[in-house]
């Protein structure tokens, strides 16, 4: 080696894994640095469950929600809701966490310098996905434990089958998050879009109720959202509720969703990221 040359380390799979670990570790530290925010993330879903819990009581006779059972095949509406809320935490993490991941870096003024590092830019998002998945899983688990103590939560079905069903759904969701993060980066002020977008997706995919209660003209909207089948299949596995389609068909739809969303998310991210670079707005906010 000549004296005036700097030897850069070779890019290997190990160096990529190292990068992923560093990014995920940084996000992990930032997240737990604000313990009150973490506490709010655990308690907030429980707060939102309370009005539904008591609403269910107003419709129940001798503790039995018979109307609900006629739709779902189960009178245990709280287990239905707690499970849906846990899944909904991931939707929220994708919209608010992943969606704002690059925008937050932009606001803190570190995006431009991160973009200059010799690592694939997509890797930055994958690193953030790992942390988001881990943190949201922990938060959801704590939430389920607390909700079980407060409201009661019973599962009679196959836990492993439901976890396996969740995997393609979550991967598809995070694939969507890649494209969405780039969109927020280009729009910069997207609070209303994110807030309403998440609320509507949650609403129409039946995070609080079986989608069969929707008026006929809204049902096609619900059935065109792949998350609807994710919620439905997981509840079907764990609570033995009536599903819209046979569970195997719903899983196949989720697999298609996963592949399409990952490809589309990466494509949109690359396109928009190039556009932001050519406009020179990476450092602006």
């Amino acid at each position: 080696m000549k004296n005036n040359e700097i030897e850069l380390p070779k890019i290997t799979l190990r160096s990529y894994l190292n990068v992923l670990f560093v990014i995920a570790n940084k996000d992990w530290k930032v997240y737990w640095r604000y313990p009150i925010n973490a506490l709010v993330n655990i308690l907030n879903p429980l707060i939102w469950l309370a009005p539904i819990f008591f609403l269910g009581k107003a419709f129940s006779q001798n503790g039995e929600a018979l109307g609900f059972a006629a739709y779902t095949g189960s009178t245990d509406y709280m287990s239905f809701l707690i499970l849906s809320t846990a899944i909904s935490n991931f939707t929220s993490a994708v919209f608010w966490g992943m969606g704002y991941a690059l925008k937050n870096d932009m606001d803190s003024g570190v995006l431009e310098s991160n973009w200059m590092t010799p690592i694939p830019r997509l890797l930055i998002l994958i690193g953030r996905t790992l942390n988001s998945l881990l943190v949201t899983s922990i938060i959801s688990l704590i939430m389920i434990i607390l909700a079980s103590l407060i409201f009661g939560f019973r599962t009679t079905g196959n836990i492993w089958a439901s976890v396996l069903t969740l995997i393609p759904m979550l991967l598809g969701l995070y694939g969507f998050g890649f494209g969405f993060a780039a969109l927020v980066m280009i729009m910069r002020e997207a609070n209303t879009m994110v807030d309403m977008g998440q609320f509507l997706i949650d609403l129409f995919s039946g995070s609080q109720f079986p989608v069969t209660v929707l008026p006929r003209w809204l049902l096609p909207v619900a059935l065109s959202i792949p998350l609807t089948y994710g919620y439905d299949a997981v509840r079907g596995w764990l609570l033995n509720t009536k599903t819209i389609l046979p569970i195997q068909t719903e899983i196949q739809l989720l697999l298609v969703f996963m592949v399409v969303m990952i490809i589309a998310g990466v494509f949109v991210f690359r396109k928009l990221e190039r556009r932001v670079r050519s406009r020179g707005t990476i450092g602006q906010y």
Binding site: I52, L55, A58, F59, Q61, G67, F68, A70, T72, L203
Partner: peptide, 19 residues
């Protein structure tokens, strides 16, 4: 969001509405 949940609680024929 709450109205649709209430609709689910009421049941298909609104059997729980009297409650």
């Amino acid at each position: 969001a709450y109205i649709l949940t209430a609709r689910a609680f009421a049941g298909p024929e609104q059997i729980a509405l009297p409650v």
